[in-house]
Nucleic acid binder design. Structure first.
Lengths: 192, 192, 192, 192
DNA sequence: TAGTAATCGAGACGGTACGTCAAGTCTTGTC
DNA sequence: GACAAGACTTGACGTACCGTCTCGATTACTA
């Protein structure tokens, strides 16, 4: 039994993997850096050297698994593209096994400004920017009323979904996503 | 020196008051039942007898200060009524000194199902129900398109606001509220 | 279901019975007045009205079961009488189910002067006095050397037994009692 | 202000010292690990890491102060040697400022088997063994009757002393020690 | 016989301490 | 110099009892 001596990026990766593993088992509240370090076979120092808090560590760990969802298609059909992208995001945040951790991370952001900022900069804002960019492309092609506020459109799209996810806890079904899309398009459609 | 012996409702009220006081000073994360009990001059048991967790205690404490915001006016002018009610809620949750605590409570709800449920049943759901009821009244008077989904309308109204409050952290200005209302009414208006 | 209302001596008796019951189940350390009151179906006040401490309550409870052992026979045969009496006491304190409680009570007496005094006055001293009295009777009949210190004899008899009981924990067998008696009589016998 | 970081044996020693200090001030019953840790400027964990219970801690603390009393002289004069050794022990256990703590420790041993065993193995048994060894040496030199049970002799010597110390509370004077010794030697003397 | 006092059960109360857990810092020795 | 291991102080957890204290029933004695 050789106690493998690892270093650098390997360790970082291993710690994040362990964080997600343990996080899924215990839930965010019972997750501790102590336990993560122990399970990963790593000194606590090695964790603290890399991340300043449990929230920051979880954020990195989650994002390392979600890079894929950031791609945005442009098939020419705006509605289909939005739909597809949202479903992908919903599947990740609301459906998959990491959903509780993601929700807890948003929770943590409520009292940890560092986490809030990082979460915004590295996940929320890029996603929003891409949605807005896709909407702009559509508007430039005359598919949307030219005077509709596209930032607002993005908020009307995202808001109700996060509202369900974080507040009412109602399920985020595909039907619900479609209903939101319907309502949004009804308001955004170019007036003849 | 008479060590005043308090009981029942007095104590409950005093503990909740202390909770908000200390919560504002320290923030939710550093708030502890230990400290609350000490500051309130009360045994820890006396707190635990009443509330199962820090979150539950904070929820009660906050709600005891927010009963007022629940009233909903019906002046005949739907838009004005919605506007007024939302501004009142926003002032409470996003502007006032209790705003950070309220946000943290929503955060806590992400990993404490008990808090989530109570928050929903006692604050979110009643507010939503009143909004929907107001919308129904308007629809029955022909002010709204009869086939518009009013639950969805409520979500489109609340969603973007909570999105800003909890996720992006952008300010919840009156202008923003108006923009959301505009977009909503554009979609809900009866088609000629 | 009539919640029987008891009073006075009945209650006192019932509480002591419960004390011994629970004490045997839990051991002295884990025994609490709280639990005794609950098990006896009695308010805590009702216990505190009667006894000032757990030790005092246990002392009374134990003595109420040990009155019998106090009798001392005088059959004319000193050695046989001592033997019989000691065996009876040993059976009670070192063998029976109450032995651990009795030992704990002596333990309690080490830091509770009230218990120490009561234990002495109501149990130890009377027993010792009777032993000494029996020895005096024997001496007056010429069975013992007239110049032997009878208080010391009593201590040489009791000491080694309590030493085993409380300190070394070795078993208090009949053989051991006999050995002590032999040694004592060797020293006390009248010199021809 | 350098918050001196101590470690290992230093800490162990400091905690034991504090234990005796506080124990003398408060008495065993009111002594708490909480208070010891606080007074020693140490985390509670640091105490619990070393000792499983208050009793175990006190035992170690007391023994660390009593190593001296264990030596046994052999001057050739058995009686004088016994006398000297017993007086030393009595001075420590019954006279000095640690006497109440020692008595309480014996009390604790009555309901904590771990303490009982450790007390026996580390204090009582070694002392007894040395006494017996000294007696054996004397017997081998013909100073004692060859058929006298030396374990019993030790018990007859110790028993009455502990009996006074723990049970009757009468003072352990030098005269009393001498009386016990006289009686013992009367029984142990070789028969002509 | 009515009124009053004592006693009861129940359990809330302010405390103190328990023994556990994790936080974040620091030290030690290995690779 | 990075690492594992883990000791350290700190502080909070949630629990258990302590001994005191109300609170309404009963119950029994007194007027």
């Amino acid at each position: 039994m050789t106690p493998v001596r690892r270093s650098g990026p390997d360790l970082t990766e291993a710690i994040m993997r362990t964080t997600l593993e343990l996080g899924q088992e215990l839930g965010y509240a019972k997750l501790s850096i102590e336990a993560i370090a122990a399970r990963a076979g790593v000194g606590k120092h090695t964790v603290y050297r890399r991340w300043p808090s449990k929230g920051a560590l979880l954020l990195d760990s989650l994002l390392s698994r979600s890079a894929s969802a950031l791609d945005y298609p442009d098939s020419g059909d705006l509605r289909a593209d939005l739909r597809r992208q949202i479903h992908e995001a919903v599947g990740l945040l609301a459906g998959g096994p990491l959903s509780p951790l993601f929700k807890s991370l948003v929770g943590e952001a409520q009292h940890d400004p560092g986490v809030a900022e990082a979460l915004n900069e590295r996940f929320i804002a890029p996603q929003a920017a891409k949605t807005v960019a896709r909407l702009e492309a559509a508007r430039d092609q005359g598919q949307l009323s030219p005077d509709f506020d596209l930032d607002l459109a993005m908020a009307i799209l995202s808001g109700p979904l996060y509202f369900r996810l974080l507040i009412t806890g109602e399920p985020l079904t595909p039907e619900y996503v479609d209903r939101v899309l319907d309502a949004l398009f009804a308001g955004m459609a170019p007036r003849p």
